[in-house]
Amino acid sequence: MAYMMRRLLWTLPIMLGVLTLVFFLIHMIPGDPVELMLGEYALPADRELMREQLGLNRPIPLQYAEYLKNTLSGDLGQSLPNRRPVTAMILERLPATLELMLGAMAVAVGLALPLGILAAVFHGRWPDQAASVFAVLGVAIPNFWLGPLLVLVFSIQFDWLPVNERGGLEHLVLPAITLGTSLAALLSRMTRTSLVEVLGEDYIRAARAKGLNRRRVILVHALRNALIPIITIAGLQIGVLLSGAIITESIFDWPGIGSLLLEGIYQRDFPLVQGCVLFIATSYVLINLATDIIYGWVDPRIRQS
């Protein structure tokens, strides 16, 4: 309980820092932000109206206080072109991003566990080396290249999978592989390292000496313990997937929060940009908090450290 409270208290100043930084984003615009949003030929009356709407004509401490009050009550402001609440726009797009992240996580774990186990069991032999090559390439391959390559092969050449637009499971396959590959590479290395370490422990040797079969020792006795750090890393990477989704969504015209952020940037809709950045960063902090708390709950050594 004390660990959980400590971790929660630690998160509060970070959240305040994130809120503050996002607030100042609009003030970092060189020159007049209203001119950037409306263009240099906008009428003075329109400029004044927008300044009023965004609250930019008030002193900065007042703007900040109001921003904090509104944000904490879930009001992220209004989008400039269509006057819709930013919070509603984000919530509309959230399911698509969650679907993509879940798909990517399934791809990552589905590839990483078998590869990592094979690499650890055949430590130093060709399956290990093949898994190493996958891991090294998987981290280096940019997802904005992998995505178009997958489209080229599986959609254009073979016409096996659809591209663009969200729909059934078959629409999710290519975006999920694009987003999940680098995580699969990272997790396969983690699985290998963790499992090689556990396989060298005395209790594994004792289990083998008792005559238990090799498969059972690896899958039941060793993997269960080797999985703890892997689950933690996977948890921490959920937030990274959230930012990786920005590029993946732009490749596949996937209607998620990443696409919404980019639409905001291209249309110079700064309330929308601020809202999306704040939402993604806050989700990242909260996911990390949840992962830490779960890790502490699973492993008492973390709670006591």
Binding site: M15, M28, V240, S243, V273
Partner: peptide, 24 residues
């Protein structure tokens, strides 16, 4: 170090995207 913690609360490219969005 708290400033570092706050900046690291922005995953991956997000902060760079946000900054380029405002700076141009």
């Amino acid at each position: 170090m708290r400033l570092v913690d706050v900046l690291l609360a922005f995953p991956g490219l997000l902060l760079a995207i946000a900054l380029v969005a405002v700076l141009g």
